[in-house]
């Protein structure tokens, strides 16, 4: 599997089927292997953060919570491209996707380093997948769209991701607009 798609869009979202079609058709045309995961159907517990940190100080790299994340971790490490497909919530990823992202802490080690002149934790794994976030705007402002793109950029810096891209689309966008935006970025990242 080369591409892992983490989808937080509801199936009833306008354009959901079109977005899925554009993504899947392009990936199939290029013969990429991919897996589509609906995060809303996953059983994922909430990360409890600094009160736990077992994944850093007890069992390095392993989260002690037993849920669907245990199947997701190896897929995350092995993927070449990670796609976040999500409604935009005030510039953030939707909470259903954020629940999964909050559990990415085992992918770090607690050792600090300077990266791009900023203080960061080091990555546990040498190569992280490239990152492509697709945010669907539903009555959100352009400021939210800007924050969404910035958030992906910050994730990429923090996770030392080599290539990343982020786009926002209106839920009522024309099919051609959707396709252009998505295909351009896929070509850059895969």
């Amino acid at each position: 599997m080369e591409i892992l798609i983490l989808n937080a869009l509801l199936k009833k979202t306008k354009n959901y089927e079109r977005i899925q079609m554009v993504l899947e058709e392009n990936l199939q045309t290029e013969n990429y292997s991919y897996e589509w995961i609906d995060v809303r159907e996953m059983n994922v517990n909430t990360c409890i953060g600094t009160k736990c940190l077992a994944c850093q100080f007890k069992t390095p790299g392993l989260c002690k919570q037993k849920d669907d994340m245990q199947d997701l971790y190896p897929k995350l490490i092995q993927a070449k491209l990670l796609v976040f497909l999500t409604p935009v919530s005030f510039g953030s990823y939707h909470s259903e996707l954020k629940k999964v992202i909050d559990r990415f802490i085992p992918l770090d080690i607690p050792v600090y380093t300077i990266h791009q002149k900023e203080l960061h934790h080091k990555n546990r794994y040498e190569e992280m997948p490239n990152l492509f976030s697709i945010g669907v705007l539903e009555g959100e402002s352009q400021m939210s769209a800007k924050t969404f793109r910035k958030l992906t950029e910050r994730n990429a810096v923090n996770m030392v991701i080599e290539k990343f891209a982020s786009i926002t689309i209106e839920k009522n966008s024309e099919l051609a607009v959707l396709e252009d935006k998505i295909v351009d970025k896929l070509e850059e990242l895969v």
Partner: peptide
């Protein structure tokens, strides 16, 4: 607190529900 460059899942969920 900042949680992976953003707010925590429980907080984002709460804000979505308020909205």
């Amino acid at each position: 607190p900042v949680y992976i460059d953003s707010l925590s899942y429980p907080l984002i969920s709460t804000l979505e529900q308020i909205y």
